[in-house]
Amino acid sequence: MNIFRLLGDLSHLLAIIILLVKIWKTRSCAGISGKSQILFAVVYTSRYLDLINAFISPYNTIMKIVFLAASYGTIYLMYMKFKATYDVNHDTFRIEFLIAPAAVLALIVNHAFEPLEILWTFSIYLESVAILPQLFLVSKTGEAESITSHYLFMLGSYRALYIFNWIYRYYAENHYDLIAIVAGIVQTVLYCDFFYLYITKVLKGKKLQLPA
């Protein structure tokens, strides 16, 4: 464990908490893409199946359970409890066009052709594009509540910090995983446009307006 990965995991945890607080407090999931939340649940489910057969550390196990519970909890809030506030007309990204390519690529480019390894690889590829429906929704509605932009900033920061973790691990532990690194860079690049708007607008107290 290193400071970059710890900060990344905490940033990820904070993002999930911000989202749950936003939905619970405002009793609304307006501006949130349910499609992205479904993709995140698929990502964590396919990645954390090793909970049953691999114990890394208490921290690792607890965080996996928290991420799984929070992602399913968010889907419950969005598609059941506060279903009436779900923006079904704007949340129209075709996630099958993200799931299928990630699955095919995981079968072709992976470290080992074993079920758990293929599922882990699939989850890595899918996570790198899982935010697209959310960014698509924000661009379609043209704006986002500030708390939603804080959620997105934390979520984008998590994998950006992981890049520093991978650099650190390469030099300090001579360990690297190209699949995770390439997918993590793609994932972070997808946030760049948002990061720019967040830093130039939201941090100055303005509303996040995307050129529709």
Binding site: H12, D50, I56, H111, W120, Y162, H175, L178
Partner: peptide, 10 residues
Amino acid sequence: NMKIHQHDEL
């Protein structure tokens, strides 16, 4: 390149 046996990252 170290063989990836166990993924210890979240």
